[in-house]
Design a protein around this nucleic acid. Structure first.
Lengths: 120, 120
DNA sequence: GTAGCAGCTTCGAAAATCGAAGCAACCCCG
DNA sequence: CGGGGTTGCTTCGATTTTCGAAGCTGCTAC
């Protein structure tokens, strides 16, 4: 054992940062993904609707995020060919399964996230 | 009501994308933050230890993330002035309070996140 | 026709991330 | 004591992401 006994716990213990968590945050760790999913929580919504609901998110990025979430099967894009073509996005079962976790994070933020002492 | 009855639900319903969720993902929505917190889940760890545990994360970004998480009071930096100065990072109570949610997300990923059909 | 809305896409600029290298301090080995 | 290894970061230039404004199509209302 070359290194001093400094480590509080073995590297292996936290080593593989939990592959599943890594996969989850490959998606959720992108700037707006979780918020888009959250915006869909209450039901289907149109592109423009989401755009207005999520403050600060630009159209170009929203389009990108929706495409990505759709690829990952968390969101479904549905087109209504009625007289005025309309598009709506909604959560898939996979996406909906994430909602409880999102709620939990939301609650955590209420209780443990200070109102920003001084934003960077 | 100028627009056709296309909206499935009122904008207000999903309007303010849940301020708390937004605040939470101002932090968690950054590329490595959640993984760093996850790496600290099993106990205190040193800089290099985390660096090796989280695959793909560079030193410069890790330093940045740790500083940010520390500012937000989710992580605490502790220096042991012993003969060999050693630094260790650990979760604060606020940070630890997030772990259940992280676990839930991890479980969700196991059950609902396909093994990447084709990475972008 | 003219205006307005929905749903995107394109484009250049700004910001975030990356990876390699550097640096001080300290330990072990010989 | 010198060489080599480890820890904890910082700096820097290059690549990626993200951003926001503008543009374009299709349709409706006036």
């Amino acid at each position: 054992m070359p290194a001093p006994v400094r480590a509080t716990h073995d590297v292996d213990a936290c080593a593989r940062t939990d592959a599943a968590l890594t996969r989850a945050f490959t998606i959720l760790g992108k700037r707006w993904n979780a918020l888009v999913l959250g915006g869909l929580q209450t039901g289907p919504a149109g592109f423009r609707e989401l755009s207005r609901a999520i403050d600060g998110l630009s159209d170009s990025v929203l389009a990108d995020r929706l495409a990505e979430l759709t690829r990952h099967q968390l969101v479904r894009r549905r087109v209504d060919e009625g007289p005025p073509v309309s598009v709506s996005y909604e959560l898939t079962d996979h996406g909906r399964a994430l909602m409880p976790a999102l709620d939990q994070i939301s609650s955590w933020a209420v209780e443990h996230l200070p109102p920003e002492p001084s934003e960077q």
